[in-house]
Each structure stands twice: as structure tokens, then as C-alpha cells.
Simulated scan of single mutants.
Amino acid sequence: MAEGANDKDYATGENERGYWRANIRLLVTLMSIWFLVSFGAGILFRDFLDQWSLGGYPLGFWFAQQGSIYVFIALIVIYVRQMRKIEKRFGLDGE
């Protein structure tokens, strides 16, 4: 009896580790994208991006003022959708 419980605990532990591994991987990916867009495009690569314009404004300025906000909202939507898939894959979707 103890052996069966131990197997279940092991499976649950592996499931939890897999869930958190997928969750952290998603967070690191999305936060890296956000960093590249907000800090990279808005500050580091601003001079290069200012060669082009969007809506009459230099592209680097646009990313610093508007683009990073739009990307952040898109990343929130992507996070929610991906977390639903991850939760479903690991049986944590509440169904």
C-alpha cells in the first residue's frame, strides 16, 4: 500500500515540476520579449529605428511611447492563452 502511494506522490511531483517548468519557460520568454521591445527598441536601438517613421513619428520614439504598451497588452493575451494550454496539458484546468 505504501508503494502505491509513493508512486502517486512521484507522479504528482513530476507533474508539478513539469507544470512549473513550462510556466517559468513561458514567463522568461514573454518577459524577454517585453524587455527587448521596451528597453531595446525604445532606448538601445532607438537611433537605428528612427530611420523609419510610423504615424508621422520616428519608429524608436513610437516604440518608447506607444509600441511597448501595445506589445505588453499582446503579451498578456498570449500569456493567458498559453497558460490555459499548459493547465490543460497538466490536468489543472478545473474540468
Rank of each mutant, 00 (worst) to 15 (best):
A11M: 11
D7S: 14
D93P: 04
G13P: 04
M1C: 09
V80R: 08
Q82I: 06
V77I: 09
R17Q: 15
Q82H: 08
L30N: 05
R84Q: 12
R21V: 09
G4F: 15
V71L: 06
S68C: 14
D50Y: 04
G94F: 10
I33E: 01
D7T: 12
Y57S: 05
D9M: 13
T29D: 04
A22R: 02
L75A: 03
N15S: 08
Y57N: 01
R46I: 00
W62K: 00
I76C: 06
K88T: 09
V71E: 02
R25T: 15
S68I: 03
F45M: 06
E87P: 04
Y19C: 08
E14T: 14
N15F: 03
N15W: 01
D47V: 03
Q82T: 09
R46N: 03
L49H: 01
I43L: 13
F48T: 07
L26Y: 00
V37H: 03
I73W: 09
F72Q: 06
L26I: 02
K85N: 14
T29M: 05
P58Y: 00
D7M: 15
I24L: 13
Y57F: 07
W34I: 06
W62Y: 03
V77D: 05
Y19E: 04
W20E: 10
E16L: 15
E95A: 13
G18W: 05
Q66S: 11
